[in-house]
Amino acid sequence: MPYLSLNLQFFADEKTEKATPKKRQEQRKKGQVAKSNDVNTAIILLIVFLFLWFIGGMLGYKLIDIMEHTFREYLLMELTPSSITAIFYELTMEAVVLVLPIMAIAMIAGVFSSYIQVGPLFAPEAIKMKLSKLDPIKGAKRIFSVRALVELLKSLLKISLVGIVVFTILWINLDSVMILALKSVEDGFYQIAMLTVIMGIAVALLLLILSIPDYLYQKYDHEKQMKMSKKDIKDEHKNTEGDPRIKSKRRQKQMEMAMQRMMQEVPKADVVITNPTHYAIALRYDGEKMDAPVIVAKGVDYVALKIKGIARTNNVITVENKPLARALYAQAEIGDQVPEDLFKAVAEVLAYVYRLKNKEV
């Protein structure tokens, strides 16, 4: 029997079920989503090199102007603390003008690549400092894990394929490369820049193709890590909906309170119509405030018996009318007015009650 219970416990804890929407939302808040860094890298490279393809000429002219200005002006300046400061400031501003558009495009590309993978997501918890990440034992386990080996093989494959692509492009353009020494500085610069952009776009397209299976693997691995056991789902349901026993007690308490409020209305009733044993309906009518009599309490069996007992204690008249009692119980709820088709029958009962009260007076 202990062996059987251990087996049952094992199967209960085995993660075989898909993650619930609640767990997916919690993991998303923590920044744990299916995402491939290779997709980010490939898209950033592709967009940046396409950007350089279209406006690289402008940046090239700007860079040549900086070089000409440096050799014509700065080399002839007297080196003093103030001149060095001025040169450093000017070169810094020129470098910002050159680099800032490229950095802005790279940032936009990074945001776009993340958005197409995970949608809009802001998870500050993912960047919180966690001391557990500094644990050398866990770090060693990550380094020598199967996942790390897979990442190493992926990197070697990518390096090999990138090397083949770059070598192929250089081989195709070998004649142009060999005569670079015969060209002017400006022509040689543009030739090298063009080859660099072509190689960059080709490598980016290659990485983009390779990132598709990586993204599918990351998604599969994320789903696998997200799986839950039957016990996890049961515990989550309890935490979300509440313990069934507690809910039952709460519901019972609410029913008791509703019953108590209903019984407090019985002494204010004008009449209680009974079955006589199984049904009891208490009616109240105020001609100045109400258009029709209102049901203030109703019940069957034990509740009916309690209503009749309270009515008897508070001198509320009880009238036996089996068809009317059944009809009122079936057609109206507490707080409702008497249905129109029962007006006549109820009016006769109330008239009888008022005659009895007048005789008593």
Rank of each mutant, 00 (worst) to 15 (best):
Q9H: 08
E14D: 10
K22I: 09
R24N: 07
R24H: 04
Q27F: 14
K30I: 13
N40T: 11
V48M: 03
F54D: 13
M58I: 15
D65C: 05
M67I: 12
H69L: 15
E78G: 14
S83N: 11
T85F: 15
I87Y: 03
V96N: 06
M103P: 04
M103D: 05
A104T: 08
I108K: 02
I108T: 06
I127C: 13
K128N: 06
M129C: 10
L131F: 09
R142V: 06
F144D: 12
L149R: 08
V150A: 07
L152K: 08
K154H: 15
S155M: 07
V162I: 04
V162S: 04
L170I: 08
W171G: 01
N173V: 00
L174W: 03
E186R: 14
D187W: 15
I192N: 01
M194G: 11
I198V: 14
I198M: 10
L207H: 07
I209G: 01
Y220A: 07
Q225K: 11
Q225C: 09
D235E: 11
G242Q: 13
D243R: 09
R250G: 10
V266N: 05
K268W: 12
V272P: 06
Y285T: 04
P293K: 00
K298V: 10
Y302S: 15
E320T: 12
N321G: 07
R326G: 02
A327W: 05
E333W: 07
I334M: 03
P339M: 00
L342G: 03
A351P: 06
A351I: 05
